[in-house]
Structures are given as structure tokens and as C-alpha cells.
Write a protein that binds this DNA or RNA. Structure first.
Lengths: 259, 259
DNA sequence: AGAAACATCGTACGGTGTTCGTAGTATTTG
DNA sequence: CAAATACTACGAACACCGTACGATGTTTCT
């Protein structure tokens, strides 16, 4: 999942920003266009899981030979970048004029939805920021949400970065909860029924705080440490995001200028 | 980097919680012990990068045959889990009695340090929570930091989860900034000098907010979107973490009971 | 018609995690 | 003491992976 940034920057930048270069004059027509390739790759990655996308299976899904892929794309790393920017491009931008809080909320909700629909985003985007047009457009929109409230530039970028960081981290917990059954090949209940005996035996009495939580709030160990219930994970996402928004609100209030 | 949770849970749990099982009575003595194996794996992963750890190279570093590794560990997935729990076990626990803020600050600082020292943690821990004794001990300690302030249980777990989510997301930005030069094989400056011409040409005039930031605050595009300067990334980490802590403080204050 | 430019793709290379079967060794048993 | 036993060690092989190379076929321009 690393695929160091091999290809020369010019080629990658051109693919991201200009799409496919002008059609060449000679030789046989390409059977594919870049859009179809990237779309198929996204669908395939969604279907088969994050790391399971292989150039061979992608080529097969497209009905072409494996080596032919390299006519369109320098390598897998660049393909992944194109996939990221394309997914981001499909997200709606936050509404302007509804206030910073509604705007950031919209942004985070869309991001969470994208991470859930395309879990591989978490692994790709975690290792390197993609410098595509849609990614930057979205970042620009996020910055403008905090414009006009008197926040200094350094704080605007800081707040947006904080939101992005939190969303990425919390979304990965949500995705984990959502994917746990599929990955283990069994239902949540089976998964826990098989592990709980070992855990309870080992944990017995050694973790008073967790025990207290279990007695007081009806949390089981499985519920607190790893919120395997999707609903619990979503609740946590919302709770923590509210914390972040509240903190941003305090900074805005402290900066003087009203909305 | 997926390595679905193959091995049976009993074996994995036993490895995590009980260490190596009682020494067998017959047959040749094992040449290795589990601790040495895991330690070497950690060192190797630190040295060669996240995904570059291979069972073959690890075996070579240990001076044994590749297949022999599977005598000690069911597979790579389980080995990675052992590595995670071992790293977490090496972290100091937050001081009790210094207050929740100091405690959480200590926790986050140590986590960030661990992510920087072992970048592969971000990719391993992102996909599944490791249920090892040290991980749970650390979680227990985090919970107890917020004990006694009158926060309801659901909020205690919510706040700890929020901190963890933020730290994971923000740390990945820091690590990205720190590793960028090594990954691209060139210095920051070279990397940007090669890409900036293409970027500025494409971005010219299309992103007024970013342009304004550049004019006003001395931010370059490279500085805002991807904080390739390590110092800037660290500043952002601290700023956002302060936001989260402030929000938690507000919740605590609203819950009545003083420290 | 011939040359040049291009897409296609079978094949091969060096890597990966893991399995299998066998060889070897130390303890326990008869 | 010898034989059975239970264990470690590991070379070889399997099924994959991303990618480079070179041959082949197709289209367009001269």
C-alpha cells in the first residue's frame, strides 16, 4: 500500500488536472478512456476491499490485458491518487451563507459518508495528501466557511486542520465497526462469543475502571474499548465532532467580530 | 496490509496475554523467544518503513529460516498485533493526580511520539483495534483521568474517544510531513521546486481563498494544504489538541462537580 | 505504398505471505 | 540403552502481486 511516488511529477499533475492529454493522431484508438478506468477501479476497490484491488483484477474487469493499463496510468500509486480526487470531486461542496457551523457540519457529514462508502480512502489518503483539483477545491471551500469571523489566518487553517484530523480519526473507528463482521466472516455476536471467554478470564479484576463502566452504564468491555456496534460508533463520532465545533465557536467568539 | 484475522482467536489471545506458552518438554529448544522476535520485527519495521517489513527479511535479521517464523507466530497479522501491543506497553502511563488536562496532554504527547517513532502504527492500528493487555491498560488509564469530575459515563468514553480520534488523525499529518523527504528521495525543496510550476500554473486565480492566505499570512500553497514543514505540522497538532481539551473542559465545567 | 506512431498484451522478473513435507533433535518411555 | 515421541527447523513450492520488455497489430501521415 505504499507504492512510492515513482512517476514523474509532470505526468501525474497532468493526469490530475488536465485529464487525458489531447488524443494522438496516429495509431489505433484507445479502447478506454481514463474516466472509465478510474470509475471501474473505484467500484472494484469498493467491492473487494481496500488492499484487494490488483492491476490484474482491474484489467480483467475492464476486459483488457494487464499491461495495457500502463498505457493510461503510470502505476498503481498514481491510479490511487486519481481515484481519491475523483471521489472527492463527487462530493457536494458545503453550502455558503448558512454559517460556519452548518457548513463544517455538512463537510464532516459528507466526508464520513465518503469514508464509509469507500473504506480504502482511509488507507490511501492517510499516507499522502493528494494534490488534485477537487481536493484543493474542497479545502478552499472549507477555509472560506470560516471567513469573515475575525479569526486570524493561522487559526483558520488550524481549525480546518483540526476538523479534518478529527474526522479522519473518528471515521476510521466508524468504518472499523462497520466492517468488522465482513472481515471476520462472522456476525458481531459470534465474533465476541468466541473471544469474550478469553478476555473476561484475563481481565477479571485487573481493570476496575472498565468494570465500573460495565456496572454503571451498561457498557460491556466490547462496547467501550472497541465500539463494535455501528450505532455506538456513530454516536461517538457526533459527540466528539460537537466538542470540536464548540471549541471553534469559542475561538470565534473570542475573536470579536460577530457573524 | 490487510491480512484478515485468520488465526484462531484462542492462539492470538494467548500470545497477547500470556506470552509464550509453557516450554514444551521434548524436541530441540527453540532458538528464539517471542520477545526477541517481536522486538526485532519492530526494529526492522522502523528501519525499512511501514509496509516493507517482510517475513523473509525478518527471518534473515533473526538468522533463521523464513518458515521457522510460523513456529512462533500464526501469521503476519498476528505478529503486527503483537508489535502494536508491545509498543504501547513501552509507553509510560499518564501521571495520576495531576489533573485531567495534564494527564490527557501527557497521553497525547506520548502517543504522538510513538507514532513518529513507529510510523507503521498508523497503518496497522487504523484497520483494527488490537485487544492486547497494554492497549487495554492504557485505555483504562485514560478513562480514569476523567474520573471524579461528575461527567456521566457516556461522556467520559466520548471524550476519550474524541482525544484518540483527533490524535490519530493529526499524528498522521505530522508523520506525513516528517516522512515526505525520505519517501520521495529528495529534499522538501527539490520536491516542491519540481511540482510548484505545474501547480501554480493550474491554480492561478482559481482559488481566491488560498491566494488570500498566501498574501496575508505568508502561507504558500505548499504550507497550507500540505504542511510539509515539520514545525508547522507540530504547531497544528498542538493547536487542534488545545481546541479538543478546551471543549472537554467546558463539558466538565457544565457537569457541576469541581475537581 | 511505405514509414512512423501508437495501443495492445504475452511473458518474465523479482518480490510477497503462507503451506507442505521432510529432516533433525531432544526428551520420555519401555 | 534403545525406541518411540513430540517438537523445532527449513528448503521448496504455490499462488499471488506490481511492473518492464519486446513483439505484434493497427491506424494515420507523408
Amino acid at each position: 500500500m505504499e507504492y512510492a511516488g515513482r512517476g514523474d511529477p509532470a505526468r501525474t499533475m497532468a493526469l490530475l488536472w488536465d485529464g487525458v492529454p489531447p488524443a494522438p493522431r496516429r495509431g489505433p484508438r484507445p479502447r478506454l478512456d481514463l474516466d472509465r478506468l478510474v470509475d471501474t477501479a473505484i467500484a472494484e476497490a469498493d467491492r473487494t476491499g481496500p488492499a484487494a484491488l490488483s492491476m490484474r483484477s482491474l484489467a480483467q474487469a475492464l476486459g483488457i490485458g494487464t499491461a495495457s493499463l500502463y498505457t493510461y496510468v503510470p502505476g498503481k500509486a498514481e491510479l490511487l491518487e486519481l481515484m481519491v480526487d475523483r471521489v472527492v470531486g463527487a462530493q457536494p461542496l458545503p453550502p455558503t451563507g448558512a454559517g460556519w457551523r452548518a457548513g463544517l457540519h455538512h463537510l464532516a457529514t459528507e466526508d464520513l459518508a465518503a469514508f464509509r462508502a469507500h473504506p480504502w480512502l482511509l488507507q490511501v489518503a492517510a499516507s499522502r495528501t493528494v494534490f488534485g483539483p477537487h481536493v484543493i477545491t474542497r479545502y478552499e471551500a472549507a477555509l472560506s466557511l470560516l471567513d469573515g469571523y475575525g479569526l486570524p489566518a493561522i487559526e483558520v487553517t488550524g481549525c480546518v486542520a483540526a476538523v479534518e484530523s478529527y474526522v479522519r480519526g473518528a471515521a476510521s473507528a466508524v468504518v472499523e465497526a462497520e466492517q468488522a463482521p465482513a472481515r471476520t466472516g462472522s456476525t458481531d455476536q459470534e465474533w465476541w462469543e468466541r473471544r469474550l471467554p478469553y478476555l473476561t478470564e484475563r481481565m477479571d479484576g485487573r481493570f476496575p475502571r472498565l468494570d465500573a463502566l460495565e456496572r454503571a452504564g451498561g457498557f460491556t468491555v466490547s462496547d467501550t474499548t472497541l465500539p463494535y456496534t455501528l450505532q455506538r460508533a456513530l454516536d461517538r463520532f457526533a459527540y466528539g465532532f460537537d466538542l470540536v465545533l464548540n471549541a471553534i465557536g469559542t475561538r470565534i467568539a473570542a475573536s470579536g467580530s460577530p457573524p
